[in-house]
Amino acid sequence: MIPKILIIDDDNDIRNLISVYLENEGMETFKAADAFEGLELLKSIDVDLIVLDIMMPKMNGIQACLKIREEKSMPIIMLSAKSEDIDKIQGLTSGADDYLSKPFNPLELIARVKSQLRRSHKYNLEIKNNRKIIEIGELKINTDTRQVFVQGKETRLTPKEFDILELLAYNKGIVLSIQKIYEAVWKEDYFKSDSTVMVHITKIREKIEPDPKHPIYIKTIWGVGYII
């Protein structure tokens, strides 16, 4: 698979320079002149890594990085004309994986890009290999066989009930709205008056919760959605 790299920098020469070096290494590049353009591209393109400049107009790289990290987890390498430690700290604490000061040696940037891609690939493989069994307390979900066990005893869920539980489990710690659950599981547009998800959650709780009226696995976040 050809790695896809997004370059976000307001300097056209730097964008083109980085692009040439990356494409010479067999990578595919996408370029954005500012953070807003970069964020818009991310809505339609799944990239493997982002090279992100800090000092940009409209929205700086730190703000952009924080925005990206709300939904995306690909590696981000920050670029900045500043070399003070405080800038490096701000960049890394905003969610960046690496930092390079301008002017930089393009070959060093290439080496860092490859390093981050290797780490990301290894991490994703480990996650993929561990995704077959999801354990949350006394709840065990086998995503291969689509079996659910509570305290070692199997409980049978309908296909849609399993899909909802699997979705919540994969997103453990994240609140999912009723609309997001419905559209992810049923692959249809959601209508506010539809109580389908609520009914299914009730049935799932009856099958996996020790006390369905006081659930310990699937929590309701009133006005927002559900969370494991």
Rank of each mutant, 00 (worst) to 15 (best):
N16R: 13
R156C: 03
I141C: 09
L167Q: 06
P215F: 06
L41W: 07
F36E: 14
K88W: 05
K4V: 02
P215W: 09
V148M: 04
V51M: 11
L79W: 11
Y190L: 08
G225D: 08
E108L: 13
R112C: 07
A96K: 07
M56W: 02
E37F: 00
K187H: 13
I7Y: 12
K128D: 11
G152H: 09
P75F: 12
C65A: 10
G173M: 04
I14E: 13
A184V: 03
K153V: 09
K213W: 04
E206G: 03
Y21Q: 02
F30E: 09
K82Y: 09
Y226K: 05
K88Q: 01
N105I: 06
I76M: 10
Y170N: 15
D98S: 13
M1Q: 10
M59C: 04
I141Y: 04
L39Q: 08
F36T: 10
G91I: 00
T220M: 00
S101L: 00
D98Q: 02
I5K: 04
G61V: 10
E206P: 06
L6N: 11
M59H: 03
V199W: 01
R69F: 10
N24E: 12
D11T: 15
L66E: 15
M1G: 15
L52I: 07
S19W: 03
R131I: 09
Q116H: 15
E37Y: 01
I110P: 07
F36K: 04
N16G: 03
Y217W: 09
I68P: 10
K132D: 14
K114S: 13
L125A: 00
M74N: 05
K153P: 02
D9A: 05
S101Q: 05
K140I: 13
P215D: 11
A96V: 12
S19A: 15
L176D: 08
K114E: 11
W222I: 11
Y99V: 14
V150K: 14
W222K: 15
P75M: 14
R118P: 01
P210R: 12
E183A: 12
L17N: 03
G91N: 09
K132N: 14
L107G: 02
V113A: 14
L139W: 00
E188M: 04
Y217L: 01
V199H: 07
E209C: 02
I77D: 03
K140W: 06
L100Q: 06
